[in-house]
Design a protein around this nucleic acid. Structure first.
Lengths: 224, 224
DNA sequence: AGGTGTGAACACTTTCACAGCA
DNA sequence: TGCTGTGAAAGTGTTCACACCT
């Protein structure tokens, strides 16, 4: 009872979480190559941040390194998994069976990381009943029931902006408190729910801005 | 020569650009309803920020409002269009004709905003020659030629991570300096090129983190 | 020597508060 | 009076620098 522990009494910057997620990915690559230990300097080089940043980010959660040596790759991966909640699998419902929904549904990257689709919903009667892999499309009217039945942890929301408010309420009632939103609209987020927005048009507009303004060059991206 | 001008001698926070993009969208909705003037307070309410934030953001580019009144909706839209580079259309090449590429290609939201696909590229010979709308898929080996021929302004990059480095070099040589990257890897961005990353798995991991950590609730999203 | 962990300095963003114009 | 535009204050995130451990 005095090994390294994952403590968390501070508030964690949004940006730090994104970086941790990225470190995790890089560490997995290192593990595959058989690297046993890695220094913050080397991780920095590979992730495009600074060594200090990495040490700070990790120190938000505990002391995982050995002075003079660096971080043991396998241990650190395991710690990051625990921190990020990747040491379990997540049950995800896809709401919106359109083009984007379809692409997301078929994208293998999600399942690889432990995010599994357990239901597909749409409000279009013509789509309801259709087969998507092992699943068949159900009606959004039944959202609450489906969430309960499938023990849904998260929703991927790929519907038109106009459909969002009603669905938000339904999800809230159903006890869903994590949503990945592709609708180009600002959600009214109830207490206790976490929402992340992915808005590809806005990303293109940021590029358009950069090209138009001449300045503001170089990396400006984020991890949407 | 003393009307409102769009000045830009400062450096613009990344976050401000994203918000401007969002204000623009809201203003268009207001215009449709026939609103002539809007105050920073009202815009704040609709966009989920604060009035001060909005005034600061806009003041980075000029003085578009009238004291005691607010901002004239139509004028402000026009100004934002100019600032964001949305007063013209952009020629976009899609590199990577897989599932995600396909969904992006068929997504109407891009064209509505003036982003037009003018070429589709892939490295898979089986896909080359296939018809995508009016376009036919071309080989990534010809990237430089295609960029020149089609006067490509931006690339949407939807390829596996392993293909990225070579393509980055080709794009750089071709003079492309805006890339929307869907590959889950950190690009090495040459001077003068702007890259924005969209990484949906990382977004899910952020949700996973939020659910796991109990704390850190409420909106945490961004505009991907 | 080598590299972590961390308080303190710094830089950047957001919020406040108010002068000034319609 | 109402609301913008903006310096100054507060807050947040990043970088520095060094004590400390191996």
């Amino acid at each position: 009872m005095c090994g390294v522990r994952t403590v968390l009494p501070k508030k964690i910057p949004e940006s730090a979480v994104r970086r941790l997620s990225f470190y995790h990915r890089i560490l997995e690559e290192l593990e595959e190559v058989g690297t046993g230990t890695v220094s913050s300097g080397e991780l920095a080089e590979r992730s495009g941040t600074t060594a200090a940043q990495i040490r700070k980010d990790l120190s938000l959660f505990g002391s995982f390194g050995k002075r003079g040596l660096g971080y043991p790759v396998q241990d650190l991966i395991q710690h990051l998994r625990t921190i990020l909640g990747l040491d379990r699998s997540w049950r995800v419902a896809l709401v919106g069976a359109g083009r984007i929904g379809s692409a997301l549904f078929e994208y293998r990257g999600f399942a690889e990381r432990g995010f599994h689709f357990v239901a597909v919903l749409d409000s279009d009667d013509a789509k309801v009943g259709g087969g998507w892999g092992d699943l068949s499309v159900e009606h959004t009217d039944d959202l609450e029931r489906i969430v309960a039945r499938e023990r849904v942890d998260m929703v991927v929301l790929a519907v038109p902006a106009s459909a969002v408010p009603d669905l938000m309420e339904a999800m809230h009632n159903a006890g869903v408190n994590a949503v990945l939103n592709f609708a180009p609209t600002r959600l009214d987020v109830p207490e206790g729910m976490t929402v992340r927005d992915v808005n590809m048009v806005m990303e293109l507009e940021a590029l358009s801005f950069a090209l138009s303004q001449g300045g503001n060059r170089g990396r400006s991206g984020e991890g949407g």
